[in-house]
Design a protein around this nucleic acid. Structure first.
Length: 300
DNA sequence: TCACGTCAAGCAGAT
DNA sequence: ATCTGCTTGACGTGA
């Protein structure tokens, strides 16, 4: 089991997701920003390795406007060496990588231009992972999309669009249960049709579910990950106290996390902590799990 | 230097 | 109708 956190490291003094306004777009600005983002990504990965954090989500802002029509710059070849260098760090240290395109990416939208833009954005995400030469266990996680008042038709639309995607996108894409439209059982339904891995979001599941217990959830999603996909990825968060349901906690509730680890101990997966304080909680979690394993070993 | 309005993009649910 | 959340605040103008 690897533990990770998404996109931002607060303690390292740089950001790998810097961007700028479309209005101020220029080739120079793009190069400068991407250079910063890639350098910082490298630093974050080194920080993570030192702290035994071997799972990381790369920000979608790594190359700002990469899938926007304004971007005609060939960032792929300009940064080829850098991508390969970062890829080597990832492979040498056996780091698991995910990406999570943002909310504007909707494959089952009723608006075809939205679908086209979404595919372009998925293509960009795929290129990042491909140019780093990462294995197919590096994944792009996506929600199924809108409900449009008719979930069955909307599910079908997702399946049809998925069928026509390029194979290199398909081999990276996984679907994730959300907290108000498509729950785990919907993902399982789709996965049976198109054979796509399911990333189980534990926190979303607590908010929106069909009363399935955690054992059922983990057992069913496990089957959707082939050998080439690696072990399943899980998103974990806990409720921020005093905020509305679904708000992510500021900092890891270690007891709640312990309970989840205990509950899921028969399964192996990599776990992404969607907690606001990022690497701080990840370090806490890593130490907890290491101590837990030592404790178990002492019992033997 | 800092406050704060706004930022490429979608959708649903709350207010 | 408008605002908020989502995986996440950061950019950039104006004072």
């Amino acid at each position: 089991m690897k533990i990770g956190y998404p996109c931002i490291n607060w303690s390292i003094g740089c950001k790998g997701n810097r961007t700028f306004r479309l209005k101020s777009y220029s080739e120079e600005r793009l190069i400068e920003t991407v250079e910063n983002n890639l350098n910082c990504l490298e630093k974050i990965l080194e920080f993570n390795v030192k702290n035994n954090i071997l799972f990381f989500r790369i920000s979608s802002d790594l190359i700002p406007f990469a899938s926007h029509p304004i971007c005609s710059f060939n960032w792929q070849s300009y940064f080829k060496k850098k991508f390969e260098k970062i890829g080597k760090i990832i492979l040498n240290n056996n780091i698991r990588i995910s990406m999570h395109p943002d909310q504007f990416i909707v494959l089952n939208s009723k608006d075809n231009t939205v679908v086209e833009r979404s595919i372009a954005e998925l293509d960009y995400h795929t290129q990042i992972l491909d140019f780093m030469r990462l294995k197919y266990n590096a994944k792009i996680q996506l929600h199924i999309g809108g409900g449009y008042g008719d979930k069955n038709t909307s599910l079908d639309r997702f399946v049809n669009v998925y069928d026509n995607l390029d194979d290199n996108i398909k081999s990276r894409l996984v679907i994730e249960n959300d907290d108000n439209i498509y729950m785990l059982n919907d993902c399982l339904f789709i996965s049976e049709k198109i054979h796509i891995p399911i990333l189980f979001d534990y926190f979303h599941h607590l908010i929106y579910n069909d009363n399935e217990n955690i054992d059922y959830c983990l057992k069913s999603i496990l089957k959707t990950w082939d050998k080439k996909d690696g072990i399943p990825m899980i998103d974990y968060s806990s409720q921020r106290i005093g905020k509305k349901s679904g708000s992510h906690a500021e900092s890891l509730d270690i007891q709640d996390f312990k309970n989840f680890i205990e509950l899921s101990k028969s399964y192996d997966f990599d776990i992404m902590l969607e907690i606001k304080d990022k690497e701080k909680s990840a370090i806490k979690a890593v130490k907890m799990v290491e101590n837990d394993i030592r404790f178990k070993n002492n019992q033997l």
